[in-house]
């Protein structure tokens, strides 16, 4: 009995990891398509990221002659980190065998590792743009990271655990309660998501305007399969962040492996449908948010992220005061 349960868990883990890698470009395409609709354009279609990836994988890679091993290795490390993060987060089922490998603090660490490598790789070639992008990325992320940790701490205080599966279980299982502290944490998380994924008020993912770009400036030197991996990792990162948001703030409908041994045939399709609906809604909401906001000056970004930190700390304090 135990072994079938474990085998099912491992199977689900593999299934979730493959599903995430396959779906991540689709989510990016969906967000871009929604943005195009909101801007009264017809848009390239939701499959465009796949076409871009295929095109990039077929091209020959061009390297700067002074590129070091770090520069070559970074796309793979980046992709690996994001894939690992996506495997840790409970996306379709709660009790997957991989999820005890890291709690939320380690998850933040995985994102930080990827960030350090991409920033180092950007500086590796020695062009002005790469260095500029890396510095800006560090400015944004060193302010976003404490806010993200505070968001996780608020959720951990409510569920008395830093393990994501435990948090999701605690929030999804018991009856619906209005948590003001989680509402604050949710607002803070949205700000962190926008900043960390190079979305509009902080960075514009669709431009190569040198005065404003952050993420694009760092990956300017990459081409072909390396660029494809970097782009895919960005999609995975967006997917992972949205999955964290869903897990913390809308965990309803996720399947539990323990319960699934009895009726997993019905729980799993339900979980996947719930996930797809939530992803579609989250992508549309993200596009709407980006259409409503205007790109802010880079020096306003610290204030924006300071607001996220403030909201997350307020959430923690309100949890202490109200116990909710």
């Amino acid at each position: 009995m135990m072994s079938t349960n474990q085998a099912l868990g491992i199977l689900l883990q593999i299934y979730q990891s493959l599903l995430v890698v396959a779906l991540a470009p689709l989510l990016t395409g969906w967000v871009n398509q929604c943005r195009a609709w909101l801007q009264n354009r017809s848009g390239p279609g939701v499959m465009q990221p796949y076409r871009t990836l295929r095109k990039l994988f077929h091209k020959d890679a061009v390297m700067a002659y002074n590129a070091s091993l770090l520069f070559r290795a970074t796309p793979y490390i980046l992709f690996g980190c994001m894939w690992l993060a996506a495997a840790i987060i409970p996306i379709i089922a709660v009790d997957l065998p991989f999820s005890p490998a890291a709690d939320v603090i380690a998850l933040v660490g995985v994102f930080a590792l990827a960030r350090v490598f991409i920033a180092l790789a950007a500086m590796d070639i020695g062009t002005a743009f790469g260095t500029l992008g890396a510095r800006r990325e560090m400015l944004v992320s060193f302010l976003a990271e404490p806010a993200l940790l505070m968001v996780f701490f608020t959720a951990s205080m409510i569920s008395h655990s830093t393990q994501l599966p435990r948090i999701v279980e605690a929030l999804a299982r018991h009856q619906f309660v209005l948590y003001p502290s989680l509402a604050f944490a949710g607002l803070a998380f949205v700000i962190v998501l926008l900043a960390e994924n190079a979305r509009i008020p902080v960075d514009n993912p669709a431009t190569h305007l040198e005065l404003t770009m952050i993420h694009e400036a760092m990956i300017l030197e990459y081409s072909a399969r390396h660029l494809a991996l970097v782009e895919w990792a960005s999609s995975l990162k967006l997917f992972a962040y949205i999955a964290i948001g869903i897990a913390l703030f809308l965990p309803y409908g996720i399947a539990e492996v323990g319960a699934m041994t009895e009726n997993w045939e019905s729980a799993l399709p339900l979980a996947i449908i719930a996930l797809l609906v939530k992803l579609i809604l989250a992508g549309a909401a993200l596009a709407l948010l980006e259409a409503l906001l205007a790109k802010m000056r880079i020096f306003r970004a610290p204030e924006f992220l300071g607001t996220a930190f403030l909201l997350a700390v307020l959430g923690l304090l309100i949890h202490f005061l109200l116990g909710a």
Partner: peptide
Amino acid sequence: MPYNIQIINLLASLLLLIAFAMLSQ
């Protein structure tokens, strides 16, 4: 917790949030 208390707690948090928003405005 009964729902009315939850709603009051939520509104109280909103009050605090608006106070902060005013401070930053």
